[in-house]
Design a protein around this nucleic acid. Sequence first.
DNA 1: GGGAATGCGTTTTTT
DNA 2: ACGCATTCCC
Length: 678
Amino acid sequence: MTLDLAAQLNPAQLEAVQSLDGPQLVIAGAGTGKTRTLVYRVANLVHSGVAPESILLLTFTRRAAREMLRRASGILDERCQRVAGGTFHSFANLVLRRYAQQAGYADGFTILDSSDSADLIALLRADAGLNKRERRFPKKGTIQALFSRVINTGRPLEELLDEQYPQFLEELEALEALQRSYGERKKLQNVMDFDDLLVNLRDLLVAHEGVRQRLASSYRSILVDEYQDTNRLQAHIAALLASRHSNLMVVGDDAQSIYSFRGADFRNIMDFPQLFPQAKVTTLEQNYRSTQPVLDLGNAILASAREKFDKRLFTEVPGDVRPRLIHLEDDYAQAQYVCREILALREEGVPLTAMAVLARAAWHTNVLEVELGHRNIPFRKFGGLRFVEAAHVKDVCALLKLGVNPRDEAAWFRVLQLYEGVGPATAQRVSGAVLAAGGDLAPLAAPALAGRRYGEDFKALKALLEHLARDGTTVPEKLALAIEAYRDLMPKKYDDVQRRLRDLESLDTMAAHYAQMDDFLTDLAIDPPEMGRREETAEDTEDEWLTLSTVHSAKGLEWDAVFVVNLTEGQFPHYRSMEDETAYEEERRLLYVAVTRARRRLYLLHPQAVSRRGGYQDDFGAVSPLLADVEALGPLGDWVDEENFWDLEEGSEDDGGDGGGAGGDSGEVLSRIQSYFG
DNA sequence: GGGAATGCGTTTTTT
DNA sequence: ACGCATTCCC
């Protein structure tokens, strides 16, 4: 098997792909073949004899990793499928399961997703009596987000409070105490939240020399995609893993950094050469995705950015259809317009699969979804509320979790309250008793409960959990047991039992792929299925569908035609980002990401009113200030600007659309890592 | 005391 | 439609 790299790559890409050793930074603008470069580099590494298992590809989603390895296999051969790949979180999970003891945990720890962790925090808040106070105490979700930010940015709680919630500064001490008890309680319950996965991996690598040596030796080459969206913790982990061979390639684009709300810091990119002074830096500037008019708009959006990183993308992709900015009365008119345009494009031969509607927030497409339904246009929705976040799915998962880890208090709290006559107080009492017994289920059958309404129910629950904990039963069998028990409990909580049961059935198809229940549950938390919440109208097997997505979930993807909806002040940019400059700048980059998803056709839609809960926003919304900034620049905002308020009745005609190893030994690298990360 | 029913305000982005 | 707080009822 030969690899004709020169024929497939431009000089800059080729350079990045061919230098197999040493640290490398690739700055890759949108559409410049970043993924291509990574894929070819993986193939080239394997081709040159590096064992696939010793290559680690860290990406933003697991889907991205799978896709890249599939492509690498297509270029070279099946060996590429054996490359280790995934997200930082999934990799951390893998390592921590192997070294649970060294990390201070027991085997079979369970994962808390953000809402689980918020629930646990709420329990502790109630324990500490912080509920019944004169002053309002922050909501559980707010506290959870704060704690998470402390971890992911490495900044002190006080600073973050001062910045974001000055009204809660007076509660600093109470919050710090809560933070401590939250940390202790998780250990006690043998659970980790998302942040613990990263923290514990880093701590493991720092504190356990032997483990670090083993991992750093076994990963001969490490590649990190979307490096601009990593946080400090992740950068530290990547550096530690590369401490032996220094073969770390990071790829990213500062202009596409859109996850700072999660602690991502694009300075990781800027500082990379500081950490690895021998780093080779490659910049990819030729865009292979979009036409010049689309790119011009992208460049213009960046041009008004507060912090400029001079990078001008150019393209040779032919095409001169200018982007269109369309002003509409409201989001119903917007939905009409988008549908008609989509159908028109399809007539012209653009397949549905090559079109996407992108939005700042998942709910922005709600009105459109109804309209698409009316017109029988099949679609899939990405981003926003996940399948696994639906209350009934969480309920069943909580049951399953207790089979794996009977110390998981958040799961207990959820499960117990499913029973008639059980509220927060009883649930907490019983789960407290189980926890105090180290996870023994005996308290469920305690004589004191016998006379209660739920006495018998709890005995049945005990039997169920014992069965779920048994080794001989398969994952799908356990799931079936849990659903069967849950079916009887549903009417207390929901009136649409049938619909929810159907969702649970789809869990079943997933469960079939797993031999271990904890793997199944972990994957549900860390790598949730991206199925649209809306039932696929016709058949699941529909092979032509339109993509609806949040801009965040559209990262790295591309379509022939892209519609960006709700470009209205307060919607996009989100109103909460308008006071804060750094947040506003991130909205700008977010719009940049959105428009650079388009290959040939780009529609920017500005509904003047956006419906909320049936009604309308009080006042009429101006066009997004992000676009106003571009307009102010003059010729670069050279889009087709049209108003389309009236002519939208079904069937009416309108104007239609056209529109490594190189330097430094392990010790030297380590000391640099140490001095950088402290 | 604790659980259930009622009413109100509210929607960012994700591992 | 959902989470939250208040009120109502056993």
